[in-house]
Structure formats: C-alpha cells, structure tokens
C-alpha cells in the first residue's frame, strides 16, 4: 500500500469503480456456475468472468500502474486479449464434448442436427 495517498481522486474513483465492477461480475459468474441447474446453462456463467470481469480488473490495473509508474503501462492488455480469445475455444470444446456424451447416452435434450439443406422452420 505504498504511495496511495498521492493519487488524485480522478484516478482513484475510476480505478475503484472498475475494480468493483470486475470483481462483482466475476463473482456473479462463479455464483451462477454454482447455482444454475443444467450443464448448458452453466456454460454461460464463466463468460461473465472472462468478458467484463477481466476487462474491469485489467482497466483498473492499467490506470493504477500507469499513474504509479508515470508512463503508460499496457501489458495487462495481453492478459485481457488472451483470456477473451482462449475462453471461447475451451467453452466450445466443452459444449461439443457435452453434446457428444449426452447423445451417446441417448439423453433427450440436445437435438440432433437436421439432415439435408433445410433450415428448421423459424
């Protein structure tokens, strides 16, 4: 907690807001993961943590470290970019794995792909 006294309010307020936003959204994502009923519903919960949860904390970190070091420090953006690009890959693979496993067991929920060129009636 060094040097926080010298930070002006116009930096401290956005940093605090971004921190509150990011950590609250991340917690909501994990809370949803715990609470939702089916696997396909739970698949949506972590994206809360990886979209604006990560973005809020990364923006707060960029603002604070840039002010403390006296120059623009953007390396946290790498983490935000990485998380935003990699989480969908994992979630897609998990979704397909769940579909395959459910179909192999003959669960009624995931519908099979329609055969042929016809899109389903809208």
């Amino acid at each position: 907690m060094t040097g926080f006294q010298d930070i002006p309010l116009w930096i401290a307020v956005p940093v605090a807001l971004f921190l509150l936003l990011g950590s609250t959204l991340s917690m909501l994502g994990a809370f949803g993961l715990m609470r939702l009923k089916s696997f396909y519903d739970r698949l949506h919960a972590p994206t809360l943590a990886t979209s604006w949860g990560t973005a809020g904390i990364v923006l707060a970190s960029i603002l604070l470290t840039s002010w403390l070091q006296g120059r623009l420090v953007l390396h946290d953006l790498v983490i935000a970019l990485f998380v935003m690009l990699t989480t969908p890959v994992t979630l897609m693979l998990l979704g397909r794995a769940a579909l395959n496993r459910d179909r192999a067991e003959g669960a009624p929920l995931p519908p099979a792909m329609p055969a042929g060129e016809d899109p389903p009636a809208p």
């Binding site: 949506h44 994206t47 990886t50 969908p88 897609m92 979704g95």
Partner: peptide, 14 residues
C-alpha cells in the same frame, strides 16, 4: 464462433 461464445448468454455448440 468466438464472438458468439464470448458474449454471455449465447454459446456456439457445433
């Protein structure tokens, strides 16, 4: 697929 899955509320399955 990245856009759809990164947006909360929609998930690309196959």
């Amino acid at each position: 697929a990245l856009i759809v899955t990164a947006t909360p509320g929609t998930a690309w399955l196959e």
